[in-house]
Design a protein around this nucleic acid. Structure first.
Lengths: 127, 127
DNA sequence: TTACATGCAAAACTTTTGCGGCGGC
DNA sequence: GCCGCCGCAAAAGTTTTGCATGTAA
C-alpha cells in the first residue's frame, strides 16, 4: 500500500499552495526549503504517483510540463513573458462543449487555452 | 553566409507539407525517406536556424515541442488522442485582441488554443 | 518487524557541441 | 579552393531505475 510520508506531504502542499502550475525544478526548490535533503528522483516518483491518483495533473506551457492540483474546475493559464511564471485564471474565453464537431469531422473532447503576455507585477515595474 | 543544402531543403519541405506541426522524431523519419543518412544533429541545427530566420516556429502540444512553418495566419491546433497526430485548424474560438487586459491586470499579447479529441480518420474507424 | 519509500548514483534518453571531412558557391 | 555544413561521436542536460538504508504502519 502507499504510505503517507513527509516528502509526499510537502510536495503535495507545495503544488497546492502555488499561484499556478509549477515545473519540476520549481517544485524541487520550494520543497527543499522544508526538506533540504529531498532528491529529485523522489519528486519525479511522487509526481507520477499523484498523477496516477488524479490528485494532480500535468499541463504543457511553452513546451515544458507544469503540475497543478486537480479539481480546480474549468480554468486556463497565463504565462508571463517577463518573469516566466505561470498563473491560473478562472475565466474561459471559449465556448466549446464536449462533443462539438468541427468542419472536417474533428470531435472535441476538451480544450486548453494559454494566454501569453505580461503579469500584473511586471506591468507595474515597467511603468 | 548560410548555404542552401539538400538537408535544409528536405527538412523545410517536410515541415511545409505536413498536415500539422511535427515533432523532432517525426521530422527526422520523414526526411530520412529522402536522405537516409541524415543525422539528428542536423535536424536540431536546422530547426534552430529556421526558427531564427522565422521560417518556422515551435508550438507546444501535450508537453512536446512541434515545429510548423510561419505565415499560416492565425490558427490553432487539434491533437488526436487516438493516433497522436496534431492538425492545424484555421478556426479561432477565441476573441482576444492584443492589448486586452484581464481582471487583476494580466495584459494579453497572444493566445494559444489546443483542442483535444478524435480526428476524422479515427472517428471513422471507431464506427 | 516488515515492506514501502528515500537518497544516492548509475543508466537511459534527449539535445547540444566538437571535429575531421564533404560539398555549395 | 575556401569555408560553411554534415555525419558521427562525445558531452551536457533531463528523467528513470537499481540498490542499500531509513521509516511509516
Amino acid at each position: 500500500m502507499t504510505r503517507t510520508t513527509q516528502q509526499r506531504e510537502v510536495i503535495a502542499m507545495v503544488i497546492d499552495e502555488a499561484e499556478g502550475p509549477l515545473t519540476v525544478p520549481e517544485i524541487l526548490s520550494r520543497a527543499q526549503q522544508t526538506l533540504p535533503r529531498l532528491g529529485i528522483a523522489t519528486v519525479y516518483r511522487t509526481l507520477k504517483l499523484l498523477t496516477e491518483q488524479h490528485q494532480i495533473q500535468a499541463v504543457a506551457v511553452d513546451g515544458e510540463s507544469h503540475y497543478e492540483r486537480t479539481g480546480q474546475g474549468h480554468h486556463h493559464h497565463f504565462a508571463c513573458g517577463q518573469c516566466g511564471r505561470v498563473f491560473t485564471l478562472h475565466i474561459c474565453p471559449v465556448d466549446l462543449p464536449t462533443g462539438t464537431v468541427f468542419a472536417g469531422g474533428f470531435e472535441v473532447e476538451r480544450h486548453e487555452v494559454t494566454l501569453y503576455g505580461t503579469c500584473p507585477d511586471c506591468r507595474v515595474q515597467r511603468n
